Amino acid sequence: MPESPRFVVLVPVKTLALAKSRLTGLPDERRQDLAAAFAQDTIAAVLDTTLVERVMVLTDDFRFADKLASAGCTVIPDGASDDLNASLRQAAAEAHRRWPRLRPVALAADLPALKAVDLSQALAEVPSGPAYVADHAGSGTTLYTASYAEFAPSFGNDSAAEHARAGATSIDGDLPTLRLDVDDVGDLGRALSLGVGIHTAAVTGRV
């Protein structure tokens, strides 16, 4: 019986001053606090996922980087801050250099309700080829994975369809906390209903 793959999860985190611009109606400071909380709660769930051996964060926000490194992440600069997919490919190459036996996974940083059980279920169902998890709207992507040789993420508009067209397999199942990326205030309300991590709970007054 083949051994289950182990994973290195790549999490791109925008400079907080630029993050979550679609959370309209909120003051800039609160928007930045929410973006930081989303990333911290996402990463906490990843670190709690058994099949994940390493977490690599891509960010140019050096002050926030120290906090993420203290949490147990490897932090590297965002290699191409204007091109998410290029940054992820560069990060995958660096992860391959450091941990060649681990399979790379690109994961959105705005999953404040993420639970390790949903991520574990998705990773347990990963096929040998490329695979992705569509977001709750069905058009975006929250997770993409492939071997290093095949790693070619296509995040952006209609990314779920782009990944499918490229031959990636959709990982099915409810996976509610893995699918719920927070782009706007409505999404935040849905995440709060599911139950968010401690950092987002603190910022939103849910503790």
Rank of each mutant, 00 (worst) to 15 (best):
A36D: 13
F38M: 15
S70W: 08
D135L: 00
L84V: 09
S193Q: 14
Q121S: 06
R98T: 05
R22H: 12
D184Q: 15
D41L: 03
H136M: 03
D187W: 05
A108L: 09
E150V: 01
R190P: 01
T145D: 00
L34S: 09
R206Q: 12
L51M: 07
P176S: 15
G156K: 02
A134C: 01
A69I: 04
G140A: 02
E150P: 05
P12A: 03
A19T: 01
A44D: 14
E29C: 09
A93M: 11
A109W: 07
D82N: 13
R206I: 09
L34N: 05
D48S: 13
T50L: 15
P130Q: 01
T141L: 02
G189V: 11
S81T: 06
L188D: 07
K20G: 01
D183T: 05
A93Q: 10
P27Q: 06
A137F: 03
T15M: 15
A131R: 02
P127D: 01
T49Q: 10
D172N: 13
T74K: 09
Q90R: 09
A152R: 14
A65S: 13
G25M: 12
S120K: 12
S4D: 14
A152V: 14
A201G: 11
N157P: 08
E125C: 00
V46D: 00
G189H: 10
D60C: 07
A86I: 10
A149V: 14
V126A: 05
A71I: 09
V203T: 12
D48L: 07
L114M: 13
A65E: 10
E3H: 15
A39Q: 07
D83L: 11
A19C: 03
E94F: 08
S154H: 14
G25T: 11
D41A: 05
A71K: 07
A71L: 13
A86S: 15
V57H: 13
H96P: 02
S120F: 05
G195S: 02
A39F: 12
T169R: 10
E150D: 14
A80Q: 13
R63K: 09
L18N: 15
A65K: 08
P112M: 05
S87T: 01
R179F: 01
L10P: 10
R206N: 11
G167C: 11
P2H: 05
S81V: 11
L26Q: 04
Q32C: 11
L114C: 08
G205P: 12
A92D: 11
G205C: 11
L88I: 02
A124V: 00
A37I: 06
A166C: 07
F64I: 04
F62D: 04
S128D: 14
F38H: 14
